[in-house]
Design a binder for these strands. Structure first.
Lengths: 71, 71
DNA sequence: GCGCGATGTCGAAAATATTTGACATTCACG
DNA sequence: CGTGAATGTCAAATATTTTCGACATCGCGC
């Protein structure tokens, strides 16, 4: 996982569709810092499954609604 | 994520339902070692989203079919 | 223009996931 | 009984994720 992982994400979309939730607010709501949210949105690395679940559930969505696989 | 993460998994079930795939074979098929498979099956830590996707897709399943959330 | 909130970037530290190798256990089979 | 395959465990090294702090930029209202 040195390079960009084959994972897509729509957390920015979900964020905006959720009352314009801020990166910092989303981070705090799921227990990570805003840096982590930024890195995930930009695909710098693949988050842990736990972080992915927390983000998806906060939006009332499934993991595969928020994150996609380009395999 | 120091302790057991709130994540459940059915990889042992899927392994057995897939022709008795071995931990070592599953690991090799998805690009991790058998130790990683053991740790995941026993819930010692939460895998990366990338590893979770690889395992699920190998079984032709979705991430949330193989991994569950106890939140 | 000035200030402010949101976003982004950089580098380095801390925490966690993954690898490796050596060894123990269990169980089926000869 | 002995051998081998599958599973587990342990400790240590490496890789990756996450945190932290400082600073830059952008857009917007005053």
């Amino acid at each position: 996982m040195t390079k960009r992982p084959p994972i897509t994400n729509r957390v920015r979309d979900y964020r905006e569709r959720h009352g314009g939730l801020t990166q910092a607010q989303l981070g705090e709501a799921v227990g990570v810092t805003r840096h982590t949210i930024i890195a995930i949105e930009q695909g710098h690395y693949s988050p842990s499954l736990e972080t992915a679940f927390r983000i998806a559930r906060l939006f009332g969505a499934g993991v595969e609604d928020v994150f996609g696989w380009e395999g």
